[in-house]
């Protein structure tokens, strides 16, 4: 039996490593390239680059590790029957029960090291475009190493914790359900998404203002709608499967939530996305243009927070609705 677990874990570990490698290098390169190609391109606005290395790199390490651990958690759930006879005590002494428990002060301090390394390298480099591209790849590799090491440290403990939860699921009351969803799904992604997309949008706005002298409120309205839609769907996609797994492992209560389908989700995000659009359109009658970097950055950050709230909220509603449907189906079949 132990050999079965070992083989199963080896397979999961291997797949997680490749997933993390592709995800780290490609995702980071895409974000890096977008920042690079937004005027003033790779030059100046050094604060953006220091922000990118010092803040985003540690956050990326945790987000990639949490995503990989989340996938492992779902894999445990999917192969629960196969692993039902495994004694949890043989796996580890200190199980963890959620992927975001990889976030700790000690791990946080360790992730600051590659961040400082990349920032120092940037400081010492000639900052030409070729150097920046190499730095982008280097950052992706550093994130892979960091997240892979976190994965290695917490994977077995999470397998044990997930098995323990799956064998004796504990129902959470409504207050605890909301608390859990906010702590483990909304807050981590809110911080990550606001910083990543906020950084992109504020750099875009600042570059735009430098080029044209101002941004019209009608443009801000359009960009806000696009931001809300994109970030909303992205956040929802990122957390949905993980929330579904949590709702299986810890049945939750969200009173007042009825049926909620994929089309409701699309309607909700697009519909809510049109609110800032309308708002800026109306404000545009009084303040037709903006040139203040402070206000544009604030708008970008607020819009991203709103989008994450929508995306994660939508994912919670959809996951809960689907879990209720499943419960009803199970009751009917009995």
């Amino acid at each position: 039996m132990e050999n079965n677990v070992t083989d199963w874990y080896k397979k999961q570990r291997e797949s997680a490593m490749w997933d993390m490698l592709f995800s780290c290098v490609l995702e980071v390169l895409v974000v890096f390239a977008v920042i690079l190609l937004i005027t003033p391109f790779f030059e100046t606005l050094n604060t953006f680059w220091y922000g990118f290395f010092l803040i985003l790199l540690p956050m990326y390490i945790f987000s990639e590790a949490a995503s990989a651990l989340g996938k492992l958690r779902r894999a445990v759930l999917a192969h629960e029957a196969e692993l039902s006879a495994v004694p949890i005590s043989t796996l580890c002494d200190k199980p963890i029960f959620h992927q975001w428990q990889c976030l700790s002060v000690a791990a946080g301090l360790l992730t600051v090291l590659p961040a400082l390394g990349c920032a120092t390298l940037y400081y010492l480099s000639s900052k030409s475009i070729v150097v920046m591209v190499v730095l982008g790849i280097l950052m992706g590799i550093a994130i892979f190493i960091g997240s892979a090491m976190l994965f290695e440290r917490y994977a077995i403990r999470l397998v044990a914790g997930t098995l323990q939860q799956a064998r004796a699921p504990k129902q959470l009351d409504e207050a605890k359900s909301i608390d859990f969803l906010i702590t483990y799904h909304f807050l981590p992604w809110l911080v990550f998404t606001t910083l990543v997309f906020g950084l992109l949008m504020s750099k875009y706005y600042l570059g735009y203002v430098a080029d044209a002298g101002e941004v019209s409120l009608s443009s801000v309205a359009v960009y806000s709608f696009i931001s809300v839609s994109f970030v909303g769907f992205w956040s929802c996609h990122t957390v949905l499967e993980s929330i579904k797994a949590d709702m299986k492992l810890q049945p939750m209560v969200l009173s007042g939530v009825g049926k909620f389908s994929y089309s409701d989700l699309v309607g909700m995000i697009l519909g809510a996305g049109s609110i800032p659009w309308l708002l800026f359109f109306v404000i545009g009658f009084f303040v037709p243009v903006l040139s203040s970097g402070f206000w544009l950055t604030t708008i970008a950050a607020v819009i991203i927070i709103y989008a994450v709230l929508l995306g994660v909220g939508g994912a919670c509603l959809l996951a809960f609705s689907q879990s209720q449907k499943q419960v009803s189906a199970e009751v009917c079949s009995q």
């Binding site: 490593m17 490698l21 010492l124 480099s125 150097v131 190499v134 790849i137 280097l138 892979f144 290695e152």
Partner: peptide
């Protein structure tokens, strides 16, 4: 994991490349 070891090797190589490509201090 061997992939982490290889990645560390690649990381060191890329650090050398950055210094090699940086022909001046800015």
């Amino acid at each position: 994991h061997p992939m982490i070891k290889s990645a560390i090797g690649l990381l060191i190589t890329l650090i050398v490349v950055v210094f090699w490509l940086s022909g001046y201090d800015r």
